[in-house]
């Protein structure tokens, strides 16, 4: 029968407990730091540049407005040209229809 020195075993166990306890604390610290880091990440990465967005939208809509103005001006130019080229014919038609000559 082997006679074991339990004192040394107890010391070893106590030492192991201490190390485990320390590991728990270390783990808690890791998690605390992670949460802090997460908070910073969230703050940093959820930030937006409001002014840049406004500028981007403003440029986009200004371009749309410019296209609209050009389109409208071109339409009017087409209309003006049509009237100019067909003025006599249109007037003649109105006159004839009014007088009833074409009936």
């Amino acid at each position: 029968m082997v006679d074991i020195d339990f004192t040394r075993l107890l010391v070893a166990e106590r030492e192991a407990d201490k190390r485990i306890e320390k590991a728990h604390k270390r783990a808690d610290e890791i998690l605390r730091q992670a949460r802090e880091e997460a908070r910073k990440i969230f703050e940093e990465k959820s930030k937006i540049d409001e002014q840049a967005i406004y500028e981007e939208i403003r440029n986009e809509l200004a371009k749309e407005y410019e296209d609209f103005s050009i389109r409208l001006a071109n339409q009017f130019e087409g209309f003006r040209k049509y009237i100019e080229e067909n003025r006599e014919e249109i007037i003649q038609k109105i006159v004839m229809l009014t007088l009833g000559v074409n009936l």
């Binding site: 485990i20 270390r26 880091e37 997460a38 969230f42 990465k45 959820s46």
Partner: peptide, 29 residues
């Protein structure tokens, strides 16, 4: 046994850390 336990505790903490950071990134996005 103590080493294994410590490894397990710290491993779990690191794993959770990665999850926490990943979740923060996703939430931020």
């Amino acid at each position: 046994a103590a080493d294994d336990e410590i490894k397990k505790i710290l491993g779990e903490a690191e794993k959770q850390k990665v999850e926490i950071l990943k979740e923060a990134e996703e939430r931020a996005l």
